[in-house]
Design a binder for these strands. Structure first.
Length: 488
DNA sequence: TTAGGGTTAG
């Protein structure tokens, strides 16, 4: 059955609205699960229309809304937070459809990323009122956002208050929160909390692995080993994952010799089986250290032992070949991967594209971008960012703007990095008009909920005042005013 | 989304 939304692939907003109305009115039966196309067409419509127009044009009662469709749309609108929240709120007034817990979680994540905590807590309250949450995942999201916004103390308070919101706390939520702190490099804080609460939550191997991995991320392998000693003393046995954490820790800290010794030790002790993650860690570790021969040897060894490489293994191997060997050799491995029947993912393409860009083969990088579409592997924001960045570095601003336009027309919205790279590039080239483009990009990014650095505002404002463009400078100042109260 | 391996470039 052809989706009723199939006609939405029209880039002209006016005709788009008409086709939506027509197709929605024709809709009488229950639609099949949301196709990606439906989600992107609806996202495109939501982006084009202001909320009022949306209420009038989008026939909410006629679309067969499902949590799956709503989640897909929220994902599409990830880099346009204000629109995503408007859409979510609009749909919340729907007469029959009610949001799922997962959709609430998405919306909460988006609001928290915009640092709009008032909305976050309002959503939590609504979630509770409708009896769909909040759940441990909701709190994982909220605490993670507080930590990454530089408010780890607030995150701890939120974690400790979970029960007041009717959300049960257990070892899982404890471990999740420890991991949130560790991943944001607040490892000491995580460790202190761990010491205080480990008895209450009956900390397990996973808790210790999380803390050890945190210290490894900080390249503090000795501290990680200390944590594991503590673990053994408390009567818990290390697992393969524990060993993989330490192995990775050595390589991350640049202790290649120690890593290799540890790997041999794991091999020697038969009781410790090794898996694809172990091998991927070592291939990547040697590669990053520039020891390509060793990386290749370990890669071959794993195949010889019958341990199947995963797509991640190939990605790691291809990446280090690009960086420390030769992009053509990396492409040979990419081709070999295809021959063996693997399906490359966006990361695979991204590392190859980056490799090509890095040696100035921009045309071939663009070919791979097209190839992604043919292979039904959607380019993501990182894909575009790499190409835009390298075009900018080469001074090919017009080409990078062309790629940027492709994003705007397609299914991938630019993120903070995209805007920062483009705006900086506008200052590298002393051409009249560039300042205006930079200013327009700046306003667009603010409208989409991104917060530019103060430096960026000042740079553009100074330029505009020097060229006597007072009116546009005022517009920029208004945009700056919309950046929130805790802006600095 | 209870833990371990793979994305930019600096």
């Amino acid at each position: 059955m052809l989706s009723p939304l199939h006609k939405l692939h029209i880039r002209n907003p006016t005709s788009l609205v008409c086709s939506v109305k027509l197709s929605f009115y024709n809709l009488t039966t229950i639609t099949p699960p949301a196709a990606d196309d439906d989600a992107s067409s609806l996202s495109f419509l939501i982006l084009k229309l202001d909320p009022q127009a949306l209420t009038h044009n989008l026939e909410f009662n006629s679309v067969y809304w499902t949590p799956d469709l709503v989640n897909k749309i929220l994902k599409h609108l990830w880099n346009h937070g204000p629109k995503a929240i408007q859409f979510f709120n609009l749909l919340e007034r729907h007469p029959t459809y009610t949001h799922s817990a997962a959709s609430f979680d998405h919306a909460i994540d988006i609001a928290a990323r915009l640092r709009n905590y008032k909305t976050v807590w309002a959503l939590v309250a609504r979630m509770r009122k409708r009896r769909v949450g909040p759940n441990p995942k909701t709190f994982a999201i909220i605490t993670e956002r507080y930590v990454s916004a530089g408010k780890p103390d607030k995150a701890v308070r939120v974690f400790l208050s979970m029960q007041e919101y009717g959300c049960q706390q257990d070892l899982n939520s404890f471990n999740t929160f420890l991991d949130v702190l560790c991943k944001s490099r607040r490892v000491e804080m995580a460790y202190n909390l761990f010491k205080v609460l480990k008895r209450r939550f009956r900390a397990d191997t996973i808790s210790y692995n999380i803390i050890a991995n945190g210290f490894c991320l900080l390249k503090r392998t000795p501290r990680a080993l200390e944590v594991l000693r503590e673990m053994v003393e408390s009567g818990l046995e290390p697992t393969l994952k524990t060993y993989n954490v330490i192995l990775n820790g050595y390589f991350k800290a640049g202790q290649v010799k120690e890593g290799w010794q540890f790997f041999l030790e794991m091999k020697r002790r038969r009781r410790c089986e090794m898996d694809v993650v172990t091998y991927t860690t070592v291939v990547h570790g040697f590669g990053v250290a520039g020891e390509i021969q060793k990386a290749r040897q370990v890669f071959d060894e794993m195949i010889g032992l019958g341990i199947l490489p995963s797509v991640a293994t190939y990605n790691a191997y291809i990446q280090v070949l690009c960086k420390k060997d030769n992009v053509e050799n990396a492409i040979l491995v990419f081709e070999e991967m295809l021959k063996k029947g693997y399906t490359p993912n966006a990361t695979t393409y991204n590392v190859v594209i980056r490799g090509l860009c890095h040696v100035g083969k921009m045309d071939r990088a663009m070919e791979y971008l097209d190839k992604m579409k043919d292979d039904e592997c959607d380019p993501n924001v990182q894909t575009y960012n790499v190409i835009i960045r390298y075009y900018c570095d080469e001074g090919e601003i017009d080409k990078s703007l062309k790629v940027f336009d492709r994003m705007g027309n397609g299914e991938c919205l630019p993120n903070l990095d995209t805007y920062n790279v483009l705006i900086s590039a506008m200052f590298g080239r002393k051409r009249s008009g560039d300042l205006m483009v930079a200013g327009k990009l700046l306003i667009e990014m603010v409208d989409r909920g991104f917060i530019p650095r103060k430096f960026t505002f000042n740079r553009i404002l100074n330029g505009l005042l020097l060229t006597g463009n007072q009116d546009f400078a005022k517009e920029i100042l208004t945009a700056q005013g919309r950046c929130g109260s805790d802006y600095c």
